[in-house]
Amino acid sequence: MQASVTTIDELPAHPGGPNIIRFGMFTFLASEAMLFAGLICGYMVLRGGAGAGWQMPEALKNAETMIKTIIATLCLISSSFTLHFAEGRLIRHTKGGIGLLLLTILLGAIFLTNQALEWSNLHNEGFWFNTAGIMGSSFFVLTGFHGLHVFIGVLLLVTSLLKALGGKFTPQRHGFLECTGLYWHFVDIVWVFLFTILYIL
């Protein structure tokens, strides 16, 4: 029927870019940002209030954990770049897009695997949700929430891959890929914050 008739007067700023989709994604990410803001503020308030009662557990401080986490962090950060370069190529159907996307997925997977191993490691060393006061609580809930986001991100990436293989992306239509990209960058930035406040400070 009339569904394809449009009523948008202000047209997408760039021809070819599905602007509404991007707008919607940014809106949604504002909400995600508030979710993490809630968790992070909670953590900071608790940590400030605990004073001397707060201490970093041994299991987190040791060099091995640190190094592994730093590597995983670097993986996550570089995956943002690989995805960025993949996007343009996938849209324009130039060479290397699929490869870069695969690499992104791999880097995301490395991050998740490391996190899973780290959790089980920490668990074995006696650091868990209910130990070390609010440090245990905050560490696992914050990294857990973030891990869940990375996991969803990987699922989105895999879906993008399937769509790309099916030739679904064109310079005019690539909203899904673009949203996946925005989401992935967002998750990445959040991690930089979390890494700083949980491991370093």
Partner: peptide
């Protein structure tokens, strides 16, 4: 949502937010 998640963990996972 963040607060409800924390409360859920307090109730079920022994966290102490």
């Amino acid at each position: 949502s963040a607060a409800a998640a924390m409360l859920f963990c307090d109730l079920n996972f022994g966290t102490s937010f």
